[in-house]
Design a protein around this nucleic acid. Structure first.
Length: 532
DNA sequence: CTAGGGTTAG
């Protein structure tokens, strides 16, 4: 953590004195008026700097309002800087200020620092209320610290740390749902239905969303096994429908979010008829579709390759001024690449700045992936180097797309060079990146290099994952090195890495293709979920 | 008149 003392000077040096938003205390209520006019972080910082220097000091509420504004702009680090500066300058702070700072830390994935502010809060004799506990609960779930979140929830209830409310229980239900523990989430919901704090729309939405996403998982698996008929309705989906019915029984109205969840889920599952049916219901019940509703429909059509329909939704969104965000662009660009219309995708990309929208790292990642897939790897490389000169930083997905694109376009050595450069530059690396290179080696006939990289993984501090093994086993099977493949398969299980459907498919295909009725085959068949 | 929970893109 940076030292606290110099924060005010940092603020002062960052913002300078160029702002035209200078406090003017000639009239009563000037401060709130001016704060409400601020619409960017620089002005907020400049205004904060002036407030700090005013005598008498503005009220703590004024400071809090400014911090609220900065948080709405998602500039959490700036809000934290303001808080530290206030502490250093001896400006009074209250529970509101501290709860916001705790939230800032939580939103940045630093719930640990949130706890330290909580400690500071106790130290100055303040007591956290239910809101602060809710914030911390959310922060724990956000960092997948489910155990600790559940423990805190228990403490809240059994040690009466505070009186839990709808938000407390909603946060817990949402957190459990998001890690796939819908069973437990529904348990909490049942308890709630019988308790004093009744569930509301938000709580039902959280579970319905989780159930819909489970349905997607079922569908994906079904597709993988090529066993499903269209319109399959797995158990989880029935559960979602039951909840939907139940909501109405309890007199809890579905809202835009509820409809969006269903539309999004149907769209992603390729069930556009159902998505449109829900859309119609939504309209009939007087709910207004929003940006997300349209994005979901657009994505649904895109995924189905119905780019004309997707474009129609996009144009309709533009017409009503809905396209204030890059996400619709990203979805449509992805859609054009999907139907191999890379020129139109590029055209959209180049047009974004004219609309005052700037491509994000996600846009670039979509673009690079599309260009590689359509065989235009020279342009991809060029755009990538241009991007490196901008302020956008490649993330995990971007790196993977680049490495994979280079490998699949026959530039395995360039991919390796890129990975080595990433190692040198201290990029955050992941075993998935090595898997891509290993696959590239296997597919380009350099099995030895694949083996070398595989065995060097542990030296670099990475454990092979199921994909690493699958890749290597596949490479060995391709060369009908079945004994070595089987050895690796056994080693995989011995190392506690569980084989998945893909592993079995690879093994079976390899052994069958090799026309070797190995003694291992019967046992493989028996254990394969495909044939079981 | 200031603090907390739900649905979008790679």
């Amino acid at each position: 953590m940076p030292p606290v003392g110099s924060a005010a000077r940092i603020v002062a040096s960052v913002c300078g004195k160029s702002s035209n938003l200078t406090p003017n205390n000639s009239q009563l209520g000037w401060l709130k008026n001016d704060i409400s006019k601020i619409n960017n972080v620089d002005d907020a910082l400049a205004f904060f700097n002036h407030m700090v220097r005013m005598r008498p000091l503005p009220d703590v509420i004024d400071f809090n309002q400014l911090v609220t504004l900065v948080m709405k702009m998602k500039s959490f680090s700036v809000a934290i800087l303001m808080y530290k500066s206030m502490c250093a300058e001896g400006i009074p702070i209250d529970v509101y200020t501290m709860s916001m700072v705790i939230n800032c830390y939580c939103r940045e994935g630093r719930v640990d620092l949130g706890f330290s502010v909580l400690g500071a809060l106790f130290k100055v004799g303040l007591m956290p209320g239910v809101i602060i506990f809710n914030t911390i609960l959310k922060g724990l779930f956000r960092e997948h610290r489910v155990r600790e979140a559940q423990e805190l929830f228990s403490k809240i209830i059994y040690e009466k740390l505070c009186e839990p409310d709808q938000v407390t229980i909603g946060t817990v239900i949402d957190g459990l749902s998001k890690v796939g523990n819908t069973r437990k989430a529904i348990e909490v919901l049942r308890a709630m239905e019988n308790g004093d704090t009744k569930p509301n729309t938000i709580i039902y939405n959280a579970i319905i969303d989780a159930l819909c996403k489970d349905k997607m998982m079922d569908q994906a698996l079904g597709l993988l096994f090529e066993m499903i008929k269209k319109g399959i309705a797995p158990s989880k989906w029935q559960e979602a429908k039951k909840l939907w019915t139940k909501m109405r029984y309890f007199g809890i109205a579905p809202d835009v979010v509820t409809y969006n969840i269903f539309i999004d889920s149907f769209s992603k599952g390729g069930l556009m008829k159902d998505a449109n049916a829900v859309f119609a219901v939504m309209i009939r019940r007087g709910e207004t579709p929003d940006i997300l509703t349209h994005c979901s429909l657009m994505e649904g059509y895109s995924l189905q390759g119905q780019i004309v329909k997707a474009r129609r939704v996009f144009d309709a969104m533009v017409a009503v001024g809905f396209v204030t965000d890059i996400i619709p662009y990203n979805i449509l660009i992805h859609g054009y690449f999907k139907v191999r219309k890379s020129e139109e995708a590029m055209r959209l990309f180049l047009n974004m700045p004219c609309k005052g929208l700037h491509p994000s790292i996600v846009t670039y990642t979509i673009l690079l992936q599309g260009l590689f897939q359509s065989g235009r790897c020279d342009i991809a490389k060029q755009i990538f180097s241009e991007m490196l000169l901008s302020t956008l930083k490649p993330n995990f997905y971007t790196w993977c797309v680049m490495l994979d694109g280079l490998c699949k376009s026959g530039h395995v050595d360039d991919a390796l060079l890129l990975l080595l450069k990433m190692e040198r530059d201290g990029e955050v690396l992941h075993v998935a990146m090595y898997n891509i290179i290993i696959d590239g080696f296997c597919k380009s006939g350099s099995l030895d290099r694949a083996r070398d990289m595989f065995s060097s993984l542990s030296l670099k501090g990475f454990d092979p994952d199921v994909t690493t093994y699958n890749t290597m086993i596949d490479g060995l099977c391709m060369k009908t090195l079945l004994v070595e493949a089987k050895t690796l398969f056994d080693q995989m299980e011995a190392n506690g890495c569980l084989a998945d459907e893909i592993t079995y498919n690879i093994m079976l295909r390899g052994f069958l293709k090799g026309e070797i009725r190995s003694q291992n085959l019967p046992s493989l068949c028996f254990r394969s979920p495909v044939l079981a």
